[in-house]
Amino acid sequence: MSTATPVTAGADTAAVRQAIATTARPPRPGPLSTALTFGWRGMLKVKHVPEQLLDVTVTPVMFLLMFTYLFGGAIAGSTSAYLDYTLPGLLVMSVLFTTVYSGVSLNTDLTKGVVDRFRSLPIWRPAPLLGSLLGDSVRYVIAGTVIIVVGVALGYRPDAGVTGALGALALVVVFSFGLSWVFSVLGLLLRSPNAVMNAGFMGIFPLTFLSNVFVDPATLPGPLEAFVNVNPISILATACRSLMDGTPDGEAITTSLVVAAALAAIFLPITTRLYRSR
């Protein structure tokens, strides 16, 4: 601990003194720049733990293979006809599953001390939340792209080509921006990342199955059909199908966007309030 301390052994006191002396406080960065910095943080996490993408892409790909080859013939007459029907829906499912992880990673942050550090900084206060959303969008795009690519490999050809696929992907990602605030609220309310994961999937899983992602609701009993038809996931899947087929369904697209905006309008303020007071 005296002057004889070798450099590799730990802190070099003289250098520490030097490091303290050399800084002047820079001007405070703007809100956008701060949010983008948090976005960068989110992307670094994806880079360091790419396995987290595996979790969210493997399940939908598994469903894609299972439903197409196991039930496809029975449901739609042939596997290729079923693939045409279900792929846009699986795109929706794949990306929406990913939004649960927004809540999980927020909760993980909270169990560590790092959020206290962020909250003690002189920064625009919603920046960490908005920024992590930017990072999350990378995950959404990757999850969606994987499904589309696997679908194409299995023989799916969107009538509207690349444009249609990109349009559908963009719509799902925008919808996910809205939905992710629901899981952020869960992430702030529940005790552990696991609890958020379980609660999140407990909600999103049945909602996905009680939609038109896998089956045409016309075949369902009355009350169930009615529910499936108003389920926002059905509407989003319909909108995606229409975009990929080159016959955009204005009503479904608008409804999806309105639902996303409504979710954000309700849950974003709740999220910021909870984040501030935790």
Partner: peptide
Amino acid sequence: GQLASVDEELTGRENLILLGRLLG
């Protein structure tokens, strides 16, 4: 803080760059 207030899922260097950027 009492719990280490650094981001465990980033590298040490990334942590410091992140804070530098956030501070302007």
